[in-house]
């Protein structure tokens, strides 16, 4: 009640952005974890990126690509962080204490995430522009 009209609008925009990003991140995480369980990480990553891009593009009023990139990046970072702490293979890689192996691994992960970002952004672009203009 202490906020002026413009502050209330800004707060509304921030709430909508938070909601949008939350939906994107949660959806992505669910899909990725599901496919991970069936040993289909690569396809899970792609499908998650496409679906998150589509969902964000349908909900967003503007900048769908920006929100998609943030969502895809966020859930991939969360996913890899969880994997780093709990996955046995990952503990083995860290256990080697070999910078070269670690560097190679991190590089491969980064390339994979970049690819998912690109796929998600492309999906958002297509869905956003296929929306019927009102």
């Amino acid at each position: 009640m202490f906020l002026g009209f413009s502050e209330k609008i800004n707060l509304g925009v921030i709430m909508n952005t938070k909601k949008l990003l939350s939906i994107g991140i949660v959806t992505g995480l669910i899909i990725v974890i599901t496919f991970n369980y069936f040993d289909l990480e690569w396809y899970g990553g792609i499908i998650a990126a496409i679906i998150v891009g589509a969902i964000v593009a349908r909900q967003a009023d503007n900048s769908p690509i920006k929100y998609t990139i943030i969502s895809v990046l966020a859930y991939n970072m969360i996913r890899w962080t969880i994997t780093a702490f709990f996955d046995q293979d990952m503990k083995m890689i860290f256990g080697y204490e070999n910078k070269a192996i670690l560097g190679l691994f991190v590089g491969a992960v980064i390339i994979e995430i970049i690819f998912f970002l690109i796929i998600g952004a492309f999906s958002a672009f297509v869905v956003y522009n296929l929306r019927k203009e009102k």
Binding site: F115, I118, I119, A121, F122, F125
Partner: peptide, 12 residues
């Protein structure tokens, strides 16, 4: 840009 991205995705 998007056409280039599309081509990149196909190659990858």
């Amino acid at each position: 840009i998007m056409s280039g991205v599309f081509l990149g995705i196909l190659i990858f």
